[in-house]
């Protein structure tokens, strides 16, 4: 008779197991909270070295004033929604003359899908985005603008990666990513001293 009795499972430790799981999740969820826009600051410049002269057409000027208005190329007030597209159009223009670019050791931009407008940037490698803000600009606006500019590059890189490798940029190997980062769409966002 005693043989038939199945020994009962002790459920007293169930609570402990639940506790352990709870703590495990607590630990893992706080891990990926820290996200943000990563940028690299420029190195300190020797004041005696003159900065390289850039052609006006290769610079995409973005100014943000203290009222958080965005002025693009010194003439158009733009909404933040349109900034990414405008930046993409500028970077992807590729309007440079093939022979002139060759002389400088740059392959002509065969992957550009822009308008090839001679009045806009020559090549993604030469295109510089210059961002200037005011000291009184709100940080939220500043981040939004930075985000849109970085986003313009991300979109272009993704487009190129999808076309060439059929994958998103993030899914490529490091070598492929570096190739795009260095030669296809290098990210050049320069920040000027803010106005007072």
């Amino acid at each position: 008779m005693a043989r038939r009795d199945t020994p009962e499972i002790n459920a007293g430790s169930m609570a402990d197991i639940a506790f352990l799981l709870l703590i495990f999740f607590l630990v893992t969820t706080t891990m990926d909270i820290d996200t943000g826009i990563s940028r690299k600051l420029p190195e300190k410049q020797d004041p005696n070295i003159k900065p390289p002269i850039l052609k006006e057409k290769n610079v995409f000027e973005v100014n943000v004033n203290r009222n958080n208005q965005i002025l693009v190329e010194g003439e158009i007030y733009m909404d933040i929604e349109d900034l990414r597209e405008a930046a993409m159009k500028f970077i992807d223009n590729g309007g440079g003359d093939a022979a002139t670019l060759k002389a400088e050791g740059i392959d002509p931009c065969t992957w550009c899908e822009g308008d090839k407008d001679p009045g806009s940037s020559d090549h993604p490698k030469k295109a510089v985005i210059s961002l200037q803000s005011d000291r009184g600009t709100s940080y939220a606006t500043y981040i939004a603008v930075q985000n849109e500019l970085v986003g313009a590059y991300t979109d272009l890189r993704n487009r190129y990666a999808n076309k060439k490798y059929g994958k998103d940029f993030d899914d490529l190997t490091t070598i492929q990513q570096d190739e795009i980062k260095d030669n296809i769409y290098p990210q050049v966002i320069s920040e000027a001293e803010p106005t007072k």
Binding site: I37, S38, K40, L41, I80
Partner: peptide, 17 residues
Amino acid sequence: ALKVNYSTRKGSAIDNM
């Protein structure tokens, strides 16, 4: 110390404005 990260929440940047 050149590597910086502007800490943000995930979401649409346009909502900031």
